[in-house]
Each structure stands twice: as structure tokens, then as C-alpha cells.
Amino acid sequence: MDENLIDYYARLLFDYHFLQQPLQKADCIFVLGSHDPSVADYAAQLYNEGFAPYIIFSGGVVRPVGELRNTVPKTEAEAFFDIAISRGVPAEAILLENEATNTGANFICTKKLLQEKNLNFKRFILVQKPYMIRRTYATAMVQFKEFDFVVSALPDTYDSYIARCLAEGITKERVISNMTGDLQRLKIYPDKGFLIAMDIPEEVWSAYERLLELGFEGRMAS
């Protein structure tokens, strides 16, 4: 395979997925589960910079040893908690949601947690990986529409993000397959009511189709 060509197509998807909104202070930083530990690093950074007084980590998927810098299998929320504590976030500022196993459930289970804890948060910063920001936004517009929110991720280019992932043991192939899977979901999930429709430029869709032809289809929804 021509790696330069793969990177060209993948960069188009990355730049499209990374919907960027200006940060604003909030009541809570709401972090959706992920296999990428830099998501927790960024949430801790936002907390330490005073953007919100609380963090919610949502994610019930149990990750194997080492995948989120963990030494024993842990849920995404639990592993993110450890990372945030190591970054100086006090435990009393963190809430854990350990049931969600997909993006929609992150929102549903977190709203349940807020109700159970009688927390009247109204403004949120939603944090995810750069290439999941557009789908996070589109899903929140359905599942979290009663709240004010912005979506955010650690600032990265495609190249710097891939380098960061490789340093964490996350392969480029996994990242690209995740990006094609997310674009497919943006296309088909509006009809299921899971998220709002988003315009997908022809150039981005063509890049997606080419990446599928090259074998990056490991995370397609059925």
C-alpha cells in the first residue's frame, strides 16, 4: 500500500471529524469513554485550567492491561479516574459512570447519574478523541439537547495524533478503521434517530470509500 496515499485520505477524514468549537467555562467536563488515554489527560488539563469544577468519566467497557496505562483490567471510567488523579485532579471532583458501552449510552447513563446525585449541572464541555468530536456533537444534539454544551478534544493534527497514538501502543490501522466506522455512523445513524444529520462533503465521502477499498473497515456498524 502507498502510505502517503493512505495518509492523504485519512487526513481528510480526521479534519472533517474534528469539529472545533471555542471553549467556554462550564459546570462539568463530561468525558466519553475511549481507548485513548490522552482523552483523560486533556480533561485533567481543562480542570486544572479552571474550565469546570467537576469531571464525569463515562465508560463501562473494560480495557485490558496496558491499554489505558492500567496495570489491571479496568473500565474506561476507572482508568480515566487514575489518569486524572495522577494529573492532580482531586478525587472529590470526579464522578464515575461505569455502565455505558457506546456513545448513546454515555449520554443516557450520565443523565441517570446526574438525576441520582441530584446534580443540577446545566453547562458541559464534552470531551472525546479528535476524530470522534463530530459524532459526539451530533449525538449530543439528540441525547443531550436539554443542556448547553460545547465539544472539545486535545488539539492535534492528523500527524501529531497518529504519533501520539503510536507512543501509546495504538496502531494507525486502528485509528483509520475507527474513523471510517465513525463516518459510516454519521451517514446511517440519523435515520435510526441516534444523532442529527451532518453534511458530509463529497471529497470526504470519496476518501472514506477509498479507505474501505484499502481494507480499513474494521469497525463498521451492522
Results as ranks from 00 to 15, higher is better:
Tyr47Cys: 02
Arg135Pro: 00
Gln184His: 14
Ala79Cys: 09
Gly50Asn: 09
Phe18Trp: 06
Phe51Val: 06
Met198Asp: 13
Arg174Trp: 11
Thr136Lys: 01
Thr136Gly: 06
Ile133Asn: 04
Ala163Phe: 04
Ala44Leu: 10
Gly33Lys: 02
Ala91His: 12
Gly218Tyr: 09
Met179Gln: 07
Lys111Asn: 11
Val127Arg: 02
Ile162Ala: 00
Ala84Asn: 02
Thr180Gln: 04
Gln184Arg: 13
Tyr16Cys: 03
Lys187Met: 13
Val39Cys: 02
Ile162Phe: 00
Lys117Glu: 11
Asp159Tyr: 12
Arg185Trp: 06
Ser177Cys: 06
Arg210Val: 15
Thr110Leu: 03
Val39Asp: 01
Ser38Met: 12
Tyr42His: 03
Ala138Phe: 04
Phe149Ile: 05
Leu212Ser: 03
Ser206Thr: 15
Gly181Glu: 05
Val175Tyr: 00
Ile108Trp: 09
Leu96Ala: 07
Phe124Pro: 00
Glu202Ala: 14
Leu113Glu: 03
Pro53Lys: 10
Glu76Asp: 07
Glu99Lys: 15
Tyr42Lys: 05
Val62Gly: 02
Glu76Trp: 01
Ala93Phe: 05
Leu114Ile: 08
Asn98Tyr: 05
Lys112Leu: 11
Ile108Phe: 09
Phe18Gly: 00
Val204Gly: 03
Met179Phe: 06
Val65Pro: 05
Ala77Thr: 02
Ala163Cys: 07
Asp191Pro: 04
Gln24Met: 14
Ala44Met: 08
Lys117Ala: 13
Phe149His: 01
Pro190Trp: 06
Ala221Thr: 15
Val127Leu: 07
Ala105Cys: 09
